[in-house]
């Protein structure tokens, strides 16, 4: 099928087998290899991208279903010269070891902070109607869809907390 995908603000025309996932379209057809393939079944979160600002598993959705959607990958969040706040915080806090899960962690955290800002509760929120706390428990729960085999979780939570606090101060 001939489709147009909007990725990181740029349109790409592609001829794709309908079976192609967004993940495979990014990696195998557009050479955007920042997004990683871990389990390919939605269990590890390494493939997380943002679609219209929402974090999703790019391995579990078909590219042909996303014409007209705004897809953002790790390449669209920052560059080596101009890191996004979360990218910089992951570096500062050593939020990784091997780095394979990191693009997914950062895309996921980017979407997750917007969810918190919108006031969405989580499984660990005591009050469904109150603004969520920026606690370690809240961040861990909200990031549970991203596994880190190196177990850098403590530093990942620290990195995300720093960015979230800086944002809160800026508001």
């Amino acid at each position: 099928m001939h489709i147009t995908l909007s990725i990181n603000g740029k349109d790409h025309e592609l001829d794709l087998d309908p079976r192609t996932s967004v993940l495979d379209a990014l990696r195998d057809h557009l050479d955007l290899i920042g997004t990683k393939k871990g389990c390919d079944h939605g269990q590890c979160g390494a493939c997380t991208v943002l679609v219209n600002g929402r974090r999703i598993n790019s391995c579990l959705t078909l590219a042909v279903m996303h014409e007209g959607d705004a897809i953002t990958t790790i390449e669209g969040l920052g560059t080596p010269e101009a890191l996004s706040p979360l990218q910089a915080a992951f570096v500062a806090h050593d939020g990784f070891q091997c780095g394979y899960c990191t693009p997914g962690q950062i895309c996921s955290a980017t979407g997750m902070l917007e969810e918190m800002r919108a006031g969405w509760p989580s499984h660990v929120s005591e009050d469904l109607l109150a603004a969520p706390d920026l606690s370690d428990a809240e961040i861990s729960e909200r990031m549970s869809g991203n596994l880190c085999r190196c177990s850098a979780y403590t530093n990942i939570v620290a990195a995300i907390t720093e960015v979230a606090e800086a944002r809160d101060e800026a508001v």
């Binding site: 939605g42 979160g45 997380t48 929402r54 974090r55 999703i56 598993n57 579990l60 959705t61 996921s108 979407g111 997750m112 969810e115 909200r142 990031m143 549970s144 869809g145 991203n146």
Partner: peptide, 8 residues
Amino acid sequence: ASGQLRNK
């Protein structure tokens, strides 16, 4: 599920 899955 997870945040990503609940979004989809």
